[in-house]
């Protein structure tokens, strides 16, 4: 203390040595970035030039683009594409949960089944798988329900039971499940083991622990990459022509352009629809993420590094932060987090 002007201040407020009035706000000359500004202007000029050129370029045939953008066949096809995406994703999520739990179980049979499934469905191209599904009725002309080596209970022709639409969904879903299973597994592993332990100690059963405690917490890790998978699936539906199923957005617009000999504007039409649907999905993802960030997401900004939103969007790198968020400061001698073996990130597509 240099100048204790009054006793009261010296003891009561010893940390602000000079003055009772707050210091005036800093008014500094802003740092200028001349080069940055110049580069920005140049880039902007190029962008404007490109857009201007595109708008006037004959090859794009904008009048045809306008004519077909809201063509009923196209909007119907967009709906079919959306249906393919949603149905196959829903099936994939359920399958992925089962596969992930099997992979994490201590039962060696479950473990290896899950492993072999992943090996096959991630190890072959989805296009090839879709062709196989299309050939299902050639390979297995009849489908039967019953026990192995015994006469079937019911039996029906494959072609009648499964439309090309459902074959496309099965093909997409089974492939996607393999990728999602790894995402789910990483999510489950990211939840601190203490959570499972606390739930068990309270007398909760394994399935209660899983559904009430572990999986809700793993959602924060699972949702961001799953959102990416949905968007990726939306685009993968353009491969269902391999089945061959031909009422999706891409195949439909190709078919139209085959009649009209205007492939470029119809590709633009399809792209516009894909972009529009993707944008809607992104909004949905945003709200889902907010929902599952409850409690954990609002982590103590005073104790954990990094901001909440940043942490969630990064997602994949987030596994290690979760367990720590609920625990107090440092724990000497204890590793606060498990190493996150982020196995969902190979992403070989």
């Amino acid at each position: 203390m240099t100048s204790p002007s009054s006793d009261a201040r010296a003891t009561g407020n010893s940390l602000s040595p000079d003055g009772d009035t707050p210091a005036p706000a800093i008014k500094a000359v802003r740092l200028r970035h001349p080069w940055r500004n110049l580069i920005a202007v140049i880039i902007l000029i190029y962008v404007v030039a490109f857009v201007w050129d595109a708008a006037n370029r004959k090859a794009f045939q904008w009048e045809i683009f306008g004519k077909y953008l809201f063509d009923q066949r196209i909007s119907q096809a967009a709906l079919v594409t959306l249906e393919l995406t949603v149905y196959s994703m829903l099936i994939a999520i359920v399958l992925a949960l089962i596969l992930a739990v099997m992979r994490l179980s201590s039962n060696p049979v479950f473990k290896s089944i899950s492993w072999v499934y992943l090996w096959i469905f991630r190890g072959t191209p989805v296009y090839v798988q879709l062709v196989f599904w299309g050939l299902l009725s050639v390979i297995y002309p009849t489908l039967s329900i019953g026990l192995p080596f015994l006469p079937p209970i019911v039996s029906f022709p494959t072609g009648d039971a499964l439309s090309l639409f459902s074959l496309a969904i099965i093909g997409l879903a089974l492939n996607e499940a393999a990728y999602l299973a790894e995402i789910v597994r990483a999510g489950i592993l990211s939840v601190d083991r203490g959570q499972e332990e606390a739930a068990t100690a309270l007398g909760m059963s394994w399935s209660q622990t899983m559904w009430r405690i572990v999986i809700p917490q793993s959602m924060r890790i699972i949702i961001p990459p799953t959102g990416n998978e949905v968007i990726s699936m939306l685009k993968t539906t353009s491969l269902v022509t391999a089945v061959p199923f031909s009422f999706d957005l891409f195949t439909r617009s190709r078919d139209i352009s085959a009649e009209t000999f205007t492939p470029i504007p119809l590709l633009l039409v399809a792209s516009a629809w894909y972009l529009a649907i993707t944008s809607v999905l992104m909004v949905g993802q945003y709200f889902l993420e907010k929902r599952f960030a409850r409690g954990i997401g609002a982590a103590r900004s005073d104790k954990t590094v990094g901001t909440v939103t940043g942490a969630i969007i990064v997602g994949a790198n987030q596994a290690t932060v979760v367990p720590g968020a609920a625990t107090p400061g440092p724990q000497p001698g204890k590793k606060p987090d498990r190493p996150s073996d982020r196995s969902g990130d190979e992403d070989p597509r």
């Binding site: 601190d192 203490g194 959570q195 332990e197 606390a198 739930a199 100690a201 405690i213 809700p216 917490q217 599952f292 409850r294 409690g295 954990i296 968020a325 609920a326 625990t327 107090p328 724990q331 204890k334």
Partner: peptide, 11 residues
């Protein structure tokens, strides 16, 4: 049972 690291359910 009460744990060193509390293990409250954060969600």
């Amino acid at each position: 049972m009460v744990f060193q690291r509390f293990n409250l359910f954060p969600h």
